[in-house]
Design a protein around this nucleic acid. Structure first.
Lengths: 331, 331
DNA sequence: CTTCCATGTGTAACCGGTTACACATCGTGT
DNA sequence: ACACGATGTGTAACCGGTTACACATGGAAG
């Protein structure tokens, strides 16, 4: 591998001049530049990123920390983030935190030793104070925790309202909600949206809300129990698509016809939802866009460019498919 | 951030001694070591990875190149790889190649500038010669292309045979095969396994094999066409689970009962297969183990430890679930 | 005809580690 | 008593870049 010294020797200039040509800063005579460029071409020289990182204290890398890359929501996100970072000449480091604070901290400290430039956190194990103390650019994805940290999220409460409203319009008389983990703000917001719509209904009872932990099997179990208690339920709003799929399976296993006797709406809009039968009706977040946006924000932050918006709250869209009796239906 | 100089000053020794303590090489007096260790603790010193990389020409990072992290097979793999790398103190860089050779090469060259230590390739866009020329440790995952490059794969042909045999045992009279892309060796091997079992059958016709491109929608379309041509088909062996899910959907849409009138077996054993209804019967590869193995192999390669096995061909297992009429069935 | 600043380039320090080499000390075998 | 190898430690070069600073020019303003 050729070094900057080889180039400087071949071009008959000093390394400083080569560096100036490389970084396009400082004054360099046009003719000199040409000589340098020729030498670079001839030697097939590519600057060494590590040496550069050492002085610049930047590795042109950023990390994406997710609870579990296996989760469709996060891998669609990862796809988008990676796309952007590649475009801007950064590399993406992948970290699975398993939602364990210790893991997450360990990752962060290890990566800071590598002069990582910033983090996209799609987790909620760290407190705002801890994040602030990291002293490194951070963007929160899908989990708002502090007004001082830039975030990208969707309008969860409004999305939930849309879902429940839709179920009501479709003729549902008793709608249950499988919510996500208690400590997650997004799960709360979606639950709140559900309550906004049905909290005052005469049929409403608090035990129509069950916790499915954003997990397929938990959700399926929860639905079985719920339907034992409330056989009259004819609509389910799930806090995410994975739980909606769990609900779907549970309902199908009970021999209840979907969408004829039971309608289900999920939340997220993961690709997976289109792969089951019937296809999941869902409140689709622009997952890919959220990833793109978060990555672009982080890069702006890193490069000290101004952020026009600190908190993105993206619009969601109701995608009517087979688990509800919509008009534009294709069961 | 404290540097090695700060430590040496506080401990009253030279940086060389500190370095020796850090790396546990060379002679260091017990007492001196204690002084150094104390200084390290006091200053909360952590060595700078970038500086270290510069001399060691190793960044303690490896890259996982997959066609698309969104694909369940690859993200389960990624999960495993990341687990191992973290355990051994490496970081994992994630790359989506989109199956484009240009992308892949660009990634590789960019990362070599960062002193990346090795690559796990779950793609097949590069020729063995190109890989050899990279002059960096590589492990191929799921795609065997050369005897000189270490690989981890499953016994595709045998797995396919198991699947088809099982369908025959279950009473299928006419079994179709949706195969993967023509240029992929694993798709060929699975197709070959199918042919091993039914190629000589009196009912066999070459056009019972269709290409589904490892893609859900292509597979669904292909199945529709196929069933129009061959209404007598009562069993489908799909080259992977995604296509099996596409087939399942297509069949369900036609109102054909699964598994009563049509049995389906997939290949891969992705978690997703257990999320649809009925659950997919499949030939399960030990995906997670494959990822673990590949990562461990690569790290051995990097650390110049001997490999006991160059080519792993892992056993697969038939997982009987709802899309076939097995005994241990739970439709 | 100075003065001054924009332009152009080289020298050397620096980033934060590793390590070859030099040098000292000490125990031990002869 | 002496040679020698094991032990212990420091100095300085090196990895491959960036950049502060010094030192030229040359043209324009005063």
């Amino acid at each position: 591998m050729a070094t900057i010294k080889d180039v400087s020797r071949l071009a008959g200039v000093s390394v400083a001049t080569v560096s100036r040509v490389l970084n396009q800063n400082g004054y360099v005579h046009e003719d000199t530049e040409k000589k340098v460029l020729n030498a670079i071409r001839e030697l097939n020289y590519i600057p060494n990123d590590v040496a550069r990182s050492l002085t610049k204290k930047s590795a042109k890398m950023l990390a994406l920390i997710v609870p579990d890359i296996t989760n469709p929501f996060f891998n669609e996100l990862a796809r988008a983030v990676e796309k952007v970072t590649q475009l801007y000449g950064y590399a993406t480091i992948l970290c699975n935190s398993d939602d364990t604070p210790a893991n997450e901290k360990q990752y962060i400290h290890a990566l800071k030793q590598k002069y990582i430039d910033g983090f996209i956190l799609a987790t909620n194990t760290l407190s705002p104070e801890e994040i602030q103390q990291l002293d490194v650019p951070v963007v929160m994805l899908d989990r708002t925790i502090s007004s001082t940290i830039p975030t990208v999220a969707s309008d969860n409460r409004e999305g939930a309202r849309m879902a429940v409203q839709f179920l009501l319009n479709q003729g549902c008389r008793t709608i249950a909600h499988i919510r996500g983990p208690l400590e997650l703000s997004i799960a709360d917001e979606r639950c709140q949206g559900y309550l906004d719509e049905v909290g005052q209904a005469d049929w409403f009872q608090p035990d129509l809300i069950v916790n499915g932990d954003f997990n397929l099997h938990h959700a399926a179990d929860a639905i079985h129990e719920l339907l034992d208690r409330h056989p009259d339920i004819d609509g389910i709003f799930a806090g995410n698509d994975i739980m909606a799929m769990g609900a779907l399976r549970a309902v199908q296993k009970r021999g209840v016809a979907v969408p004829d006797a039971m309608q289900i709406v999920g939340y997220d809009g993961i690709t997976l939802g289109g792969m089951v039968y019937p296809e999941l009706t869902t409140v689709a977040q622009p997952i890919y866009e959220m990833g793109l946006l978060a990555a672009r924000m982080l890069i702006k932050l890193i490069e000290k460019k101004p952020l026009d918006v600190m908190h993105y709250k993206l619009d969601v869209e109701l995608v009517q498919r087979g688990t509800t009796r919509g008009s534009a239906n294709q069961p």
